[in-house]
Design a protein around this nucleic acid. Structure first.
Lengths: 158, 158
DNA sequence: TTGAAAGTGAAAACCATTTTCAATAACTGC
DNA sequence: GCAGTTATTGAAAATGGTTTTCACTTTCAA
């Protein structure tokens, strides 16, 4: 999984610089990792992978960068109930990361991304967002849909 | 807001005892408070109110009780992104607490319960749950739908 | 009434996240 | 390219919600 872009040439370059943020090794490494496709990583997951390649990128920077990315809407932060936040790239350069929702096992904490039914869900969400936004004068920027239950494995081991 | 039931006579009595749990002052006080209707209270919120009336019920008991209730499905635990969990009674004795979803302001953390569109949402959720349950062999027990954005007040102060 | 087991409070531990602060790196204008 | 400004950084300490520990108390079945 090599770096696909020279320093400062990433697709996010513009967005980042446009908002007054500087491009740093740590930030690029984190965006690169998140672009890699693996979803719902914790800050520590990210730190361990980044730190292996760039030993002078610290956990603090990971948290700070995720915060910035979250604020820019480039990353979504999730809570799956295991006491640590999880992060996912909101949108790849060419829409690589299709919109999906999560199925969370309350026993083993495994998370399944699903895209089934997503069209219906998104369609309903769009309507609901519009209605709620008008009724409560709320500017809706994002949503979360999650299902909780027991995964196949945990059902067996019951 | 007086206790409406004598000790051990609450509607949850059966469910509780049926699962091998003992009825204690603290547990009853907590269930009573949650039945009172105010939604999305934090553990500390609950502790402060309970402790005022029953000074020997500690914060630890609040956490433990909420955990038990959560496990029994009598209480739902939510994360609204402000670093503390929030709890709501899942279902009153006679369905007092109608199913609703949440609108969360990312600026002031205010939470609005809404029931608009809830029928469409629940209908879609039912279908989705069925489909996902079959496809992934998942036993779905609950769901979360939340919208995030800026509330009316925070939009003004912008 | 009584004993076994569940439940408890207080204090300590836990642990993900945030803050502090002095040092460093990235960008700007020259 | 260079220097100055300022954002960014790592390490360590602080924070704060939640959990654990442990000796004591309460519940409840017999």
């Amino acid at each position: 999984m090599p770096m696909r872009n020279c320093r400062g040439q990433g697709w996010w370059h513009g967005k980042f610089r446009g908002c007054g943020y500087r491009l740093t090794v740590g930030r690029e490494a984190i965006l690169d990792l998140l672009s890699g496709g693996k979803g719902h990583l914790s800050a520590e997951d990210i730190y361990l992978k980044i730190h292996a390649r760039y030993p002078n990128v610290g956990l603090t920077t990971v948290y700070r960068t995720l915060d910035v990315l979250s604020g820019l809407g480039m990353v979504h932060k999730f809570d799956f109930g295991d006491g640590r936040a999880r992060y996912e790239l909101a949108q790849g350069p060419k829409g690589e990361h299709p919109h999906h929702h999560h199925l969370v096992c309350t026993s083993c904490n495994r998370v399944i991304d699903y895209t089934d039914f997503i069209d219906d869900e998104v369609e309903l969400l769009r309507r609901t967002e519009k209605g709620l936004g008008e009724k409560y004068n709320f500017k809706i920027t994002s949503h979360v849909i999650q299902f909780y239950g027991l995964c196949a494995k945990c059902r067996e081991n019951k």
